[in-house]
């Protein structure tokens, strides 16, 4: 087997540009996805049947369709109804919508798993369900949420490689460009895998630090 080290040394710094783009698109999508997921998760715990139904539909749709199709829908279908987004923002929107659905389920599940006596105690001092959610249940849910949220953000970061199909010049797309000119798919894909692995490891490390920094009792 022949392994072309020259391509690797040539490609390694070129791919750094792609890493930056991957980080940018993932970070923006992560922030939006977290906000969306938190809002949707809390809404799915509300009293409103309508609101719960809408969230249910959203989560089911995202879970029931491939991300690749969702990306194409945002990029190609939205312009049909007059919303035209540049590749970067189409990518951000698609990733955030996707992650938001899974995060909503994490929020709903974690907050819902807080012992029933806690919400009863909130009600017993005259709090509404909403106040109980905000001041009693949610503050206790942050820490147990972190591991599951980390999984979702890791998935989001890896999923950003799919944005190569709409020409977002992120890591995977950058690698493909090099493959196209140098035809060394094995070396480049291996290099891409290592880059992703390093990125995800850093993310996991940060997440563990956050989890440890959050109060437990």
């Amino acid at each position: 087997m022949y392994f072309d080290w020259n391509v690797v040394t040539y490609a390694a710094p070129l791919l750094a540009h792609g890493v930056v783009m991957t980080l940018q698109v993932s970070a923006v999508a992560a922030v939006l996805g977290l906000l969306l997921g938190l809002a949707a998760g809390l809404a799915s715990l509300s009293n409103s049947v309508l609101l719960r139904g809408v969230i249910r539909l959203y989560v089911e749709f995202i879970r029931g369709t491939p991300l690749l199709i969702q990306i194409f829908l945002v990029f190609f279908a939205l312009p049909v109804i007059g919303i035209r987004l540049p590749e970067f923002w189409a990518g951000v929107v698609a990733l955030a919508l996707n992650a938001g659905a899974y995060i909503a389920e994490v929020v709903r599940g974690t907050v819902g798993s807080i012992e029933k006596g806690q919400s009863e105690a909130g009600l017993s001092i005259g709090m509404t369900r909403r106040a109980t959610l905000m001041w009693v249940l949610l503050p206790q849910a942050w820490r147990p949420m972190v591991p599951a949220l980390t999984n979702d953000l890791i998935t989001l970061t890896k999923n950003s490689s799919l944005l190569s199909v709409i020409s977002v010049y992120e890591l995977t797309r950058a690698g493909q460009a090099i493959i196209a000119t140098h035809f060394a798919p094995f070396e480049i894909f291996l290099l891409l895998a290592l880059y992703y692995w390093a990125l995800i490891s850093a993310l996991a490390y940060v997440s563990r630090r956050i989890e440890r920094a959050l109060p437990s009792w």
Binding site: G117, A121, P215, W217
Partner: peptide
Amino acid sequence: FVFQRFNLFPH
């Protein structure tokens, strides 16, 4: 209301 298992807010 005072609960059997206290139900204090642990945080």
